[in-house]
Simulated scan of single mutants.
Amino acid sequence: MTRPNFVKLTEDQVRARKRRNVAIALGLVGFIVLVFIVTVVNLQRNTEARKAAEAAALATVERADPALPAPVAPAPEAPVAEPAQ
């Protein structure tokens, strides 16, 4: 069985290949960062919209029947104490 004849790349070709690989890697990382940022922004926007919708729903319930007990507002989050060292 004979060995195939491989093409030997010149130094310029090897450097060009490395530059292309780095450019592709940077483009891929940039795309991943862009998708992450868009996802985080959408999550924040949806969270704010949900809070507004819940507040509107509570206000609607309060107006609809004043005989209902007042809705329980969520307790404010207490600051987290750091452990003593």
Rank of each mutant, 00 (worst) to 15 (best):
A84T: 14
A67L: 14
T47A: 13
E62N: 13
L68P: 04
V7F: 14
V22E: 09
N46M: 12
K8E: 14
I37G: 06
R50N: 05
T2Q: 06
T47Y: 14
L26Y: 06
V33F: 06
V29W: 03
G30E: 13
F36Q: 03
A55D: 02
A52W: 00
V33I: 15
A67E: 13
V80F: 13
I24A: 10
E82I: 12
A78K: 15
L58E: 03
A64T: 12
R19Y: 01
R15F: 00
Q13V: 08
V7K: 02
L26T: 01
Q13C: 09
Q13E: 05
L58P: 08
A25I: 15
R3E: 08
Q13W: 05
A23W: 02
T2P: 02
V72L: 11
F31Q: 11
P76I: 11
K51Q: 13
A23L: 06
V41T: 04
A70C: 01
E11D: 02
Q44T: 10
V33Q: 02
N5E: 06
N21E: 07
K51W: 01
V33P: 09
L26K: 00
I37E: 07
I24T: 00
Q85S: 08
P71F: 09
F36I: 01
T60L: 13
P4E: 09
N42L: 15
P76S: 12
L9S: 00
A56H: 03
V14Y: 09
V80C: 08
A81Q: 13
Q85N: 04
R63K: 09
A56G: 12
A52M: 02
P69G: 15
A78I: 03
L28Y: 00
I37L: 07
P69T: 02
L28M: 14
A56S: 14
E54T: 10
A25W: 09
M1V: 10
A23V: 03
A25M: 15
A49G: 15
V41Y: 10
V7I: 10
P74K: 07
V38A: 15
P71S: 07
Q85D: 12
I37V: 11
K51M: 03
A55G: 13
L34Y: 09
V61I: 05
Q44K: 09
K51L: 05
P4A: 11
V80I: 03
P76A: 01
A59F: 01
A23Q: 02
A55I: 14
V61S: 08
L58T: 04
A64R: 13
P71N: 07
T10Q: 01
A23G: 10
P74M: 00
M1A: 04
R3H: 06
P74W: 09
Q13L: 02
R50Q: 11
K8C: 00
P79W: 04
N21D: 05
P4L: 10
N42P: 11
E62W: 08
I37C: 01
G30C: 08
V80Q: 07
P69C: 06
F31I: 01
E62S: 12
F6C: 00
A64V: 14
V38R: 12
P71H: 06
G30N: 01
A84L: 01
Q44A: 14
V22R: 00
L68E: 03
V40D: 13
A64L: 00
R15S: 03
P83Y: 11
V72R: 07
P66Q: 04
L58N: 04
A25S: 03
P71W: 07
P79T: 01
P66E: 01
V80L: 08
T47L: 03
E48H: 07
